[in-house]
Amino acid sequence: MGERVLLKGNEAASEAALIAGCTHYFAYPITPQNEISAYMAKRMPKLNRTFLQAESEIAACNMVYGAAATGARAMTSSSSPGIALKQESFGYIAGAEVPAVVINMMRGGPGLGNISGSQGDYNMCVKGGSNGDFHNLVYAPATVQELADLTLKAFDVAEKYRILTLILGDGYLAQMSEPCVLPEPSGFKAEKPWALTGAEGRPAQVINSLRLADGVLEVHNRHLEEKYKAIEAAEVMFENFHCDDADFVLVTYGTASRVCKAAVMNLRKQGIKAGVFRPITLWPFPSVALAAAVAGKKQVLTVEMSLGQMVADVRLAVNGAVPVDFLGRPGGAVPMVDEVTERVLSYGR
């Protein structure tokens, strides 16, 4: 095992991408993730890899699309307003089935909002954002360690399924430093017969999303559906933190989940049995596991740093079996341990 070092989230994600073998990184500056670009600008040329500051968020993501279409491990990173711009290429990448990795260190919105950490992009990133039927595979790390581990994993999974994997962090995770052990390379290698390398000794091939002929697009959509089902079956990740004996289950992700865990420890000290169910993949959403984890509980409380976006998926998963309450802090605020604790206490024993 590697050495435990104090690393800033943005640096840990960058280094994990390098360990994963990311050879091409393209991005446009935006706070609070600028340390990623700075890190890559410094390190990529030394490793004989490509760093390029693009003219726009849109161009950066299309450069990723182009490089990834040749089989390269390519990544871009940004924050909320920049991710909104990148949504265009997300749809093309999904339709053309190119593996790509994108990091979104969410900030407050809508519009320019502010530069604090926030969770207002759940709908944009988890529910699509671009046109058409598609999914991104979305990871929501809660610690710097998990950010590093999931960034590494994101490259493998992207190639395994030829899908865009998105790391959905926030400004706090981006800017905070925590102890972290950098992950080891996984050794995973995907065959890429689809990669554009010039039609030498094989028929020419095309990476595209346009399927105009009668019925062809529906067939392609069905193919994507099958792929998405396979991902739902194999790639769901979640954390069950003291849910088993709990009366109250807090459903929360990313930075908000850290506060909820502290609240659970507080509550347990007071003899209140609470737990945290934390989706780590937001798509695929751990609906089945969540339904099982909350079965027979008194109350579910969803806590987000937003006005309530994931809570819709929680309600669908719980399906009325248990009442679902919501506590949200939008605009770059972090919920306080006390306010979460008090909300749970308000349900009575």
């Binding site: 104090l6 609070p32 706090y172 925590e178 850290r258 502290a262 609240a263 420890m265």
Partner: peptide, 29 residues
């Protein structure tokens, strides 16, 4: 431990600060 600086617009005014949390257990925010 966790360490987070004030960043962005705040740091342009010439003031700087950071928040450090040190704990035996989990660190919340």
């Amino acid at each position: 431990v966790s360490h987070i600086p004030s960043y962005g617009a705040e740091m342009r005014g010439g003031t700087a600060n950071c928040c450090v949390v040190i704990s035996d257990g989990l660190i919340a925010s």
